[in-house]
Design a protein around this nucleic acid. Structure first.
Length: 307
DNA sequence: AAACCCTTCAACCGCAACGTA
DNA sequence: CTACGTTGCGGTTGAAGGGTT
């Protein structure tokens, strides 16, 4: 690559990670948690820079990452969110807890952009020049300031929505079984993200793979295809205990950034910090929708553009 | 079979935001 | 308030693999 390296240190390894390196990193995280990345290379003996370690963990090794094809529902959600939020991949990823921002970004750049462009051209060829085209154009090259709402308006509404979220959380905390009530609340405001969240919290099984499973699969794949340098192992599995899992039911709670409140809602066997369960959405999706669409319903044009 | 082109995605980079002394 | 270190984010790159000629 043409750029100067981010790490000046000599002897810093770059390029694809080996299973051995993954194991070293995972064992470090199991011991110290996903923090203090600066210490990770020195503690583990990895010849990688701290940034590289963090990226490897967040984009690949972290439990709960779903790999493989995106579902139609995920696709539509990404398109909608991209139209609303622009290229804020981390924010978009917070609504798809099983996907990383990098994955979403890649998927957008390699698949969705083309798909929408193709559809856009088809419409043009049919001489159907109408409002639909405007929507498609905005999706393909979104305006950083969404729609007609000014930045000031946007921030005020964001703040009021956060206040609403706080109130909902407060109500949830005042009940005996907060997680159940909270789940039902969240189901009301955000059925999309809660579909998997509720299942994760109410049962001992989950669609997520633990990092131990991640590693074992990686090794398995490595053994099967030793010549392959890239690890395409699918980590989308399987059964595991909640001790390894991240609960994603606390999407709303994290708006408050209160560790005490978070700890009340987290399962006792769950991760110890919000950062371990991945970034929570900025606000419930339904709130987001209402900011831009008066009736709280996604414009049908967006969905139809994928057909 | 070989050369070339295209697509994919893991990993890198610079920069901004954040935390701390 | 400032300086410095760390972390997170979005844009970009390039190796690898697949497809086409």
């Amino acid at each position: 690559m043409g750029r100067s390296p981010c790490c000046d240190k000599e002897g810093v390894k770059k390029g694809p990670w080996t299973p051995e390196e993954d194991l070293m990193l995972v064992s470090y995280i199991q011991e110290h948690g996903p923090r203090n990345w600066k210490a990770a290379p020195t503690t583990t003996g990895l010849m990688r820079c701290s940034k590289s370690c963090r990226l490897r963990w967040t984009n690949y090794l972290r439990p709960g990452i779903k790999r493989g094809n995106f579902t139609e529902q995920e696709e539509k959600l990404i398109i909608h969110l991209q139209a609303l939020l622009g290229n804020r991949w981390a924010a978009i990823a917070s609504y798809l807890p099983e996907r990383t921002d990098n994955d979403i970004k890649n998927y957008w750049n390699t698949h969705l952009k083309k798909k929408l462009l193709k559809n856009h051209n088809k419409i043009h060829n049919n001489c159907e020049v109408n409002e639909l085209n405007k929507v498609d154009e905005e999706i393909i090259t979104p305006n950083p300031q969404p729609t007609t709402i000014s930045k000031g308006q946007w921030e005020r509404r964001l703040q009021s929505d956060i206040d609403m979220a706080k109130q909902a959380l407060h109500e949830a905390l005042s009940l005996k079984n907060p997680s159940d009530h909270f789940s039902s609340l969240m189901m009301k405001v955000n059925p999309v993200t809660m579909t998997t969240s509720a299942a994760t919290t109410t049962t001992s099984t989950s669609p997520y793979a633990s990092n131990a499973e991640n590693i074992s699969r990686l090794l398995e794949d490595w053994m099967k295809h030793p010549s392959k340098k890239r690890a395409h192992t699918s980590f989308n599995s399987s059964e595991s205990t909640c001790s390894e899992e991240g609960s994603n039911s606390l999407t709303l709670a994290n708006n408050n950034k209160s560790p005490e409140e978070l700890s009340l809602l987290l399962p006792s066997c769950g991760p110890s910090s919000a950062s371990e369960i991945g970034e929570a959405p900025l606000m419930p999706l339904s709130f987001l929708e209402t900011l831009f669409f008066e009736d709280g319903v996604w414009p049908s044009e967006c969905s139809s553009s994928l057909n």
